[in-house]
Design a protein around this nucleic acid. Sequence first.
DNA 1: CTTGAACCTATAGTTGCTAGAGGACGTAGA
DNA 2: TCTACGTCCTCTAGCAACTATAGGTTCAAG
Lengths: 145, 145
Amino acid sequence: MLTIGKLGTSTGVKVPTIRYYEQIGLLPEAERSAGNQRLYTHKAHERLAFIRHARELGFSLEAIRDLLSLSDDPDQPCAAADAIAKAQLAEVESRLARLTALKTELERMVVQCAGDRISDCRVIEVLGDHSLCVTNHPTIGDAGQ
Amino acid sequence: MLTIGKLGTSTGVKVPTIRYYEQIGLLPEAERSAGNQRLYTHKAHERLAFIRHARELGFSLEAIRDLLSLSDDPDQPCAAADAIAKAQLAEVESRLARLTALKTELERMVVQCAGDRISDCRVIEVLGDHSLCVTNHPTIGDAGQ
DNA sequence: CTTGAACCTATAGTTGCTAGAGGACGTAGA
DNA sequence: TCTACGTCCTCTAGCAACTATAGGTTCAAG
């Protein structure tokens, strides 16, 4: 049986984060010692490691909740888990594409400044005039409330 | 003079977001019509377009606040603006590197499932066992409160 | 002159934590 | 046995950057 601190160090998840996961129901309520301190089994360690790994891969807590409930029921078809992972992959690919475009633009912006005064500054200039921008970005909002 | 709705559609920023930017002081308080509705000048449109463009490039509102105060004062040296942009570029490059690694791993995960039951599901398997993972991720937490 | 879209304020909710206050527990040494 | 210190407990509030909701006003078209 591990204390919350040991569980934290062994999984690489901060103590308040573990309590938070319990609070939102991602982890079951832990057993308690005589003095009311949480005690964790090997199973809990595995579950938390799963969560942590999925978080590293960018899965939302909601997606992880779904994956956990799938893995709790190993006779189910695996299509649902696959779909979640594929959605995640699509997300990552789209973020990747956008970031690559941003990187290009930032590089152009930063290469050098024409002058040494703000009035000649390429950074400010590019940011102020979208038409200087090569890339196509999605809209931030769609206006109208 | 534009209403907030027109300003929103013309810049691609949602109406509540514009009000939010005013509230946190990124945009100056707008003039009001007789009926207390906000009215925007061309200057405000430019400023909001600048903000929006910078947000698209991933700059934080704090960074944008700094850039705006720099551009309000065009005789200052441009080094500070350059530094902000360079920091942003470094950020983007680091996110890009991590995302690329994640993509590889997700692809491996998704390629196909060995079986059609969860118990054989590669997605669940990979997430449950970090040692199946090739890439090096940063820790989510450093444990201990 | 009425309808309905667009506006107003104010407050609360979102995601995924993190930080702080104020106190109890647990263990090692004096 | 005492005491000190690290770890634990609960609870509440805060972070970014918005988004949503409630309940009311204004404005332009028909």
